[in-house]
Amino acid sequence: MSGTSAPGAPAGGVRGVLRRWWFEPVAGSRIAWVRALVYLFIPFDILVVTQDVKGTAALPGNLYQPVLFARLLHLPTPTPGIADTLQWVLLIAAPLAATGRFHRVLGVVVAAAFSWWQLINMSYGKVDHDHFAIMMAVWLLPTAGRARFRDDTPSEAAGWTLRCMQIAAISTYSLAAWAKVKESGWGWASGATFTWAIERRGTPLGHWFLNHPDLLRFGQWVVFVAEVLSPVILFLRRWWLAAALVFWLGFHLFTWLCIGIHFLPTIITLTAFVPWERARATVEGRFAGRRAARPARTESIPAEQPA
């Protein structure tokens, strides 16, 4: 596996910089947390977010419009039986994979079944991009090697996997800007696409904005600029990174409140940016502090507080 090879002496030039950035070792425990979150999200996805794949699978084959990968893999025309089987496989395999046991075998089973499910989901004419990053994540996670929730040993394999997940998530934003320019030219943000979205599927809150077209146009500019700038997030650290992630979480919350589109599958892959081992250390530190504070009342204080 490419992620485990040692970098050896630091290579120079662009290649060396790229390599160090892409394989920057991170605490292995991060993989354990991200893996648990992604794999525990999958049952929610297939039971709630894309539950209606079972409805499409009931359609006769003449409305099935398989996308390229479904044709290349010669996937059969979906049936309710196929949808039920995939759902059961995922409901059993994904929570098991979340534990980190047999991560490779279970990870590949989940990746294959989830991809099949999503290929069905996108094969009736409409292709959404909210599942791109999580589809990459399920194929990336089995390459990350063993990882335990409490083992913070730095790992290049973990670093590679998380970096690729980050790039996939950010691509969802940056390439959306490119798609807008390609499809609509530079005038996208001055159009009325938000009005279009709200007129067709707006919530009561969304409909309030229909009376404020200038506000909607301003929103389009904010989103477009944020999408263009999104690759910067890959190089941000600490509070700047946190602020950028909060901005996108806020954006998704807002679109959910206004037009019912939430992008949760993409949001779950943004967890690849979170230094989970630090969050855990902070929580454990608090608990340890409390535990230490209790006996401290009865025992001698100097013994509890080494210099």
């Binding site: 934003y173 005038g187 996208w188």
Partner: peptide
């Protein structure tokens, strides 16, 4: 695929 949701003007 392209990230083309709402990419039209």
């Amino acid at each position: 695929a392209p990230m083309s949701m709402f990419a039209f003007r």
